[in-house]
Design a protein around this nucleic acid. Structure first.
Lengths: 332, 332
DNA sequence: AGATGTTTTGCAACCGGTTGCAAAAAGATA
DNA sequence: TATCTTTTTGCAACCGGTTGCAAAACATCT
């Protein structure tokens, strides 16, 4: 079916090694030989079988790209950036969808069967133990958007979610809201937990301010909207910190539908600073998360780790900052 | 590094073939042998190398998933559905991002180097020739969301975009709009061209109605918004058929920002029926595209083609229908 | 027990490449 | 031209599996 190295060798009248060498950088081949081989290869339409060569070289250039975030549009950009960044470095992303999969074992086994050179776990919801399972299996791993830790067991690239929670809380406090609330993503998600923890820890400094918490069941527009419609039925706060912009936008839509106004009746602060947050009719005050930097740093770290597998684990944490727009009332 | 079949064979005191056979369905192995081998394999933590075996079996279970639609959130769902559907069948998606890549040759070469069993081109914008390049290279291919044709050269699964254009036009005509417009995605996208063609062909039946056309430079919220802001400066129509819901939603936001109302001042009809279209504060009248069916049918067709590579090319076209909500004025 | 039929097993060649090593070719030096 | 280096080339073994084939083991029947 496909043209093999042997056929090229025969056509060019040279040994198989010679052909192999002309297709391997840094191998010793004379110009004459190279020309002969390339001619034959061209005539036959030969291109080397990456999988066969991986057998001896031990490198497949395959990178497992593992995620369970398939509802937050931010992740479409994340996938875009990852796939392009990896491709630019000659690496190939093998996509693994972890939706409703809790146990890392299956993925670990599968990715090892395909001898991936490394794994990028791109998820803000998976626990650190997930990425660690890959490391324990001897596969280089980078956890992007993962939980930061002062003593990481695996490479982590992302933001300090706890600090973001505090930041949001401070912002609400400064504006003088007296009943605030946290509306997070899935409660099991590490990012939700951390943002929640940070938010609460800051609010503890202000015991006179009422605090409520609730959780949407996904990081998605609809989940945010549904949760807010529920909340509006009963108790309601002055201002909400939404664990993500998609939640915020869903929440915003729920509030407007109920005939209430933002920021007059209810204040909203989100997290991520997605493109839509900038639209005039949304104009969401939010915390900017530097997605591009996180992705490109993750890729660099991955590449570095491929060259130096025993590299000491590190956490790369990027700072976030509040982008003030129109969904919180002005500071008094 | 990884445990090999040979080591398992030695540990179990059997031949390599025996080990290979216990890990191959339908091979002849006695129960006693199987138990011995499985025990050794378990103790060593062995799992077979999929790439090595592909060398002899000729099957990698790798499927190239090729796309250039990384801005339309609908495609996040598409990727979700594809990855899960493929995984459920034991196939592995190798993701290829084609953004700013016009020539199929690179992708074809790359995917052949990785000996993918098949390729799914998931794109509403690539021309049929793109998918054909894979077929010509002897790789089974299914073009999802591709241009339908009565004599397809490759398998195509999707909708009839021309008919959708007509459908939208009829809808606007019925409502008695007298200046209508088409606001499409990138002009080079086949889906844009077809929706445009259908729209125009229907409008030709109604020469008294004014028709305008323009094109956003991507299928994204922002591109739709930008294009509409531009249009509002000058000429403006009574009603717009937007080539996609993301465009519609961007367009809607631009209209509202300009102090105009929908559907009173301007009518909008979209295409896709994405989740957000249902929100009360958006409430978009649109044409429903059956995404899940398209994806699952694509996967079925892919699997069928893997088993029968010379299968005669077919086009699977799913019907669309108008979902009436609140962005067009009622029929008089 | 012996003849016959059916499974199960191991041997060895193969899949499409790579690579250490030694022989051959080319280049440099005297 | 003979000798010594350096570069280029081919041989053969190997990467981690699969598989056709024939021998070995087991089961069945007289």
């Amino acid at each position: 079916m496909a043209v093999t190295l042997k056929e090229v060798a025969e056509r060019a009248g040279v040994s198989r090694s010679a052909v192999s060498r002309t297709f391997t950088d840094g191998a010793s081949v004379s110009d004459k030989m190279r020309r002969k081989v390339e001619k034959a290869a061209r005539e036959l339409g030969y291109s080397p079988n990456a999988l066969a060569s991986s057998l001896t070289t031990g490198r497949t250039k395959l990178i497992g790209l593992v995620s369970n975030n398939f509802h937050n549009p931010i992740f479409l950009e994340v996938f875009d950036l990852f796939t392009r960044g990896l491709q630019d470095r000659g690496l190939r992303p093998l996509l693994v969808n972890l939706t409703d999969e809790v146990d890392p074992e299956n993925s670990v086994r599968m990715l090892r069967q395909y001898s991936v050179d490394g794994v990028v776990v791109a998820s803000s919801t998976l626990p650190p133990g997930f990425a660690k399972a890959f490391r324990d299996a001897g596969v280089p791993v980078v956890h992007s958007f993962g939980r930061s830790s002062s003593s990481p067991q695996v490479h982590v690239v992302g933001i300090d979610n706890v600090e973001c929670g505090r930041m949001a809380a401070r912002e609400l406090v400064t504006r003088g809201y007296d009943k605030v609330a946290f509306l997070g993503g899935p409660e099991a998600a590490t990012s939700t937990q951390d943002r929640h923890a940070g938010f609460m820890s800051e609010m503890e400094q202000h015991p006179h301010i009422g605090v409520n918490c609730s959780f949407a069941d996904a990081y998605s527009f609809d989940a945010g909207r549904r949760e807010m419609l529920r909340l509006l039925q009963s108790k309601r706060a002055d201002a909400y910190f939404c664990g993500d912009d998609v939640l915020s936008i869903g929440v915003l839509s729920a509030i407007l539908d109920s005939g209430l106004n933002v920021p007059e009746d209810i204040g909203i602060i989100g997290l991520n600073d997605m493109e839509m947050a900038r639209w005039e009719n949304i104009d969401l005050t939010t915390i900017h998360q530097p997605i591009r930097q996180i992705v490109s740093s993750s890729i660099e770290l991955m590449v570095a780790t491929l060259n130096e597998p025993d590299r000491y684990p590190e956490a790369r944490i990027f700072p976030c900052s509040v982008v003030e727009r129109g969904t919180l009332r002005p500071v008094a």
